[in-house]
Design a protein around this nucleic acid. Structure first.
Lengths: 191, 191
DNA sequence: ATTAACATGTAAACGGTTACATGATTTC
DNA sequence: GAAATCATGTAACCGTTTACATGTTAAT
């Protein structure tokens, strides 16, 4: 029966997937099979805007199986144990229902902006140092994403590639913003 | 004595401020006096990239006072109790030390991107719906930030205003990205 | 009178990270 | 033979949100 519902029977009904359940179901639909797989897929794709750790993934796989949204089957690789999961009908419906609803979570935590905010107007050097650090960060993330992009050629309109492009472009925009503002502070401060 | 250090005496030594301690100390330096003030300041400034709830602020004020980084004084408004806090020397040094170190926290959680990623390449309408929702979100946040900007006129190079400008520009960039990609999908899909 | 704003706080639940623990297989 | 990778899991901790609880004062 579905999770988190005071439900009457084994029928599918509207339920709220936990944040981790969303990424687990999505990654299973996307081709991942084991918990290890899911972690690896996440790290190479959604990590920069939606991460997941083993500490979340394995317990969530159990919960989702208990709720009947996925089914696991033991498939060892030699003597190395391995459980392969796949979506059930309920699981596929739950995923589709979530995908069809409006997104609600948009969260940002940026320590550089916080530091910038607390930097006094009379200390442009401190502000420039923070801007430089933030710029470097976005340049590094952008570089990592471009590496991934170079490895996976594909249809340009595929949403997977669109999201990767977003990461590359958003980080480039942020890096250029930092460059611009730092130049502004440096230029007017010393020139 | 400073918090979170197996320290020997009352002297200041390097300590790691908790995430909430940073925003509390910063807001006290920035002019906030009470816990209520801190919450109000946060909601009108750093909220879009660094939030704080009462459930964090009040316990943190106690911890920081116990650690000697701030000092509170009872200052009731009529019969309404009120505690005003101010930074101690140690508190000011701890804030300065944190401000001078490299920022490390850059976190993003975007449910729209996650949905986009899981949307099949053959379902452009679903992708467009997600893009539209994300665009609307950024337009709304941008509008709210512009309202705040209109209320607080000031020196354009003040980091406080720089950060607000960042919020406005970043949300505008994101909205325009969504518009562009949705148009691309719609144009090629039906044209 | 009523509502908004001022003001402080706690408890439970939730979600996530990190460290730890274990072991097999493949590649160098 | 060592290191990287595959593979699964738990426990403790950390940080945050939400709901609850209480009371005052100012504005309409």
């Amino acid at each position: 029966m579905p999770a988190q519902a005071g439900d009457i029977s084994g029928r599918y009904m509207e339920l709220t997937l936990t944040p981790t359940a969303r990424v687990v179901l999505g990654m299973l639909a996307h081709g991942a099979r084991s918990g290890y797989d899911i972690k690896a897929f996440v790290d190479r794709s959604t990590r920069f805007f939606w991460a997941a750790s083993y500490g979340q993934i394995y317990p969530e796989l159990r919960r989702l199986e208990g709720a009947g949204l996925i089914e696991g089957e033991s498939r060892p690789t030699g003597g190395r144990r391995r459980t392969e999961y796949r979506l059930t009908g309920d699981g596929r419906r739950a995923l589709g229902s979530w995908l069809g609803s409006d997104p609600e979570v948009y969260e940002l935590r940026d320590e550089a902006l916080l530091k910038l905010f607390f930097t006094a107007a009379g200390e442009p050097d401190a502000a420039i140092a923070v801007l430089d650090a933030k710029r470097r960060h976005h340049e590094e993330v952008g570089a990592r994403l471009r590496e991934i992009q170079a490895q996976i050629a594909g249809e340009p309109r595929d949403p997977k590639l669109m999201v990767l492009r977003y990461g590359i472009e958003a980080n480039a925009w942020q890096a250029s913003w930092c460059r611009r503002e730092a130049a502004e502070l440096a230029g007017r401060g010393s020139g």
